[in-house]
Design a protein around this nucleic acid. Structure first.
Lengths: 118, 118
DNA sequence: TCTTGTGCATAGAAGATCTATGTACATAGC
DNA sequence: GCTATGTACATAGATCTTCTATGCACAAGA
């Protein structure tokens, strides 16, 4: 999968801010691997969020390095080699923290929007 | 106001992603100026979000350059010179767009969290 | 006159992102 | 058995952003 650009895109900073909690929460449901995670994000967002593999892998590597997720190589039924990721204990905690932070900021925005009658 | 660091902070990327819509929505309620915006953010977040002036002004300059907000120098009652900002028409539109984008991403996260039983 | 608080400003270090590009192999079609 | 396509992972480094550190100015109070 080598895709480029797209129109009406979600701003980069928003994608960046949501990427980590989204990956963690997907893995919280059970182990998965790169391509499947991208497909899952697309599915969850009704096709509105389309990640590229090039942006996901660095995130996975970073999360692994931070000890939030664990990875193992395994062979899929179809004969392909895949790197399966699963949530580590630290990742579970991080997910809870990040969710709280996201909710906090969302609440602040909601209040401000309300008062501005957006 | 020259403040440094803080503990248990909201991640930078989340602050960055929320900063623009937050500033726009504050200005949507009526014109304001740098220091007051910072105070308003602190108030809205119950003290949990504390922006520094150093991070806000570049954002204001960028938004002005993008034509989303307008600025004028004026003297406050206290004799101080202040730069008052107000929302431009383009800013109103941008705010609506950004709100929709934030809500979309929030919904995706919410779905994923729900399924993961976070 | 010193300190504190208000108020705006910016250079540039530091850091993050992600595009472009690469490899590899399975499968299907011809 | 050749080619195209899709799956799957990987990463260098250009590019862009962010924000810390620092500066200026002035009012007011001590």
């Amino acid at each position: 999968m080598h895709k480029t650009s797209s129109s009406e895109a979600i701003p980069k900073d928003l994608v960046a801010a949501s990427a980590t909690p989204l990956v963690l929460s997907i893995l919280a449901k059970g182990e998965s691997y790169g391509y499947a995670i991208i497909a899952r994000v697309k599915e969850l967002s009704d096709g509105k969020l389309e990640w590229t593999d090039g942006m996901l892998y660095p995130i996975l590597h970073r999360l692994e390095e931070q000890g939030l997720i664990r990875a193992t190589w395994r062979n899929a039924e179809n004969g392909r080699r895949r790197r399966y990721y699963s949530l580590a204990a630290a990742g579970k905690k991080a997910l809870a923290t990040q969710r709280a932070q996201w909710d906090l900021v969302s609440a602040v925005l909601a209040t401000s929007w309300e008062q501005a009658h957006v």
